[in-house]
Amino acid sequence: MIRRLAGLVLLAALTLVPPAAAAEAPKPFRIYMALWRGWEEAAQGFKDYFANQNIPVELIVRNAAQDKSKLPEFVAEVKRLKPDLVFTWGTTVSQEMLGVIGKVDPARHITDIPAVFAIVSQPIEAGLVPSLASSGRNITGATYLASMETQVNLIQSWRRFRHLGMVYNPLEANSLVAIHELEALGRSVGFTLTALPADLADGKPVPASIAAKVAALKAAGVDILYIPPDTFLNVHRDLLTGAALEQRLPSYAAAENPVVTSKAMFGGIYRYYTVGQLTAYKAEQILVHGKAPSAVAIDPPRRLSIIVNMPVVRALEFYPPMKLLGLAEVVDPAGAK
C-alpha cells in the first residue's frame, strides 16, 4: 500500500527539472521518454533517480497509450529533437522504435541516439539484443523478470524443499519454459519437480480442473507449490491458491497478484519503480560516464522484493525465517488475532 504513494506523485511528473538545479548545471541532459501505458512507477523511478543523484535532466515525455500507430510519430519526433538519450517502455515500444535485430532500418528506427529500454521481459527473445552481456548496438536496458535461480533461492531461504509442485496451462509457452528451467535447476540443486497441466477442453484450459491437480500434487508429496507468471493462472488465482490453502500446501508466486489479492503464501518480484531506477542508472553510465551502450550489460535489479501473505502463513503455520521476515513486505490487512 505504501508503495502506491509513489503513484500519487504522478502530478509532479510532467514538471521537468526544478529551475534552481537547472541554473546550477549549465546544460541538462535531454531524455525522450516513450511510454506505453502512461506515467507509472518505472517512469517515476527513472525520473527520481536523476533527482536523487543530482543529475540535471530535461525529460520529454510522450505517451503512446497502448496505441502502436503513434510510435512512428515518436521516432520522427526524436529525429527532429535530437535528444541525448531515448527511454523506451515495454517490449512493443522498444521493438517499434529501436528495431528488431536484422530488421533495423535507420529511416524507421532510432540508431544514432543511445537508447535504454525498461520493462522488457525477454530482450533476447524479443529480438532487441543478441545477449544480455552486451547489446552490440547503441542500446541497453533493464530486465524485470527474476531468474529462476533467484526465485528458487528465495523459496529455499524460506524452507529447504525437496519436491516442488506446479500446475500450469499447457498452452502457455512461458510455463513450458519455466518447467524446463526448473527441471534443469532441480537436477543441480537437488529437488524434483512435479508439474501437472490443467485439463484442456475445446482447446482451452479448464479452470475447474485446477483444484484436483493441486490435490494430486499434495498427494504426490510436494513441499511447495510454484505458481508461474501465467495469464490463465493469474485470472483463476483464487481457485489455485484457495485449493493450495485447503490442501495446506504452501505456495510461492512469481507475480504480485496471487499474493497481494489472493491466497498465495509469498512471492518474489521486481518492482517497476526499481526497474526504472536501474534503467536510469544505465542511462547515467552512458550520459555522465561516457560508456558506450553496448558496454553496459542488461540485467535485472539486484534485490528481489519479497511479499508475504501473513493470513495464509498463519493459517498454514508455516512461518518465515526471521531474516526473510526482516526483508519482506508483509500483506496483513486484518492483522493478527
Binding site: Y319, P320, M322, K323, G335, A336
Partner: peptide
Amino acid sequence: GDIAHAATLGIPLDRLVGMDEF
C-alpha cells in the same frame, strides 16, 4: 524489536524460524 514484530504478525514465540541465522 524484530522479534516483537514477528510476534505482532501472529508468529508464536516458540515457533520462530531461522533464529540461528538471525
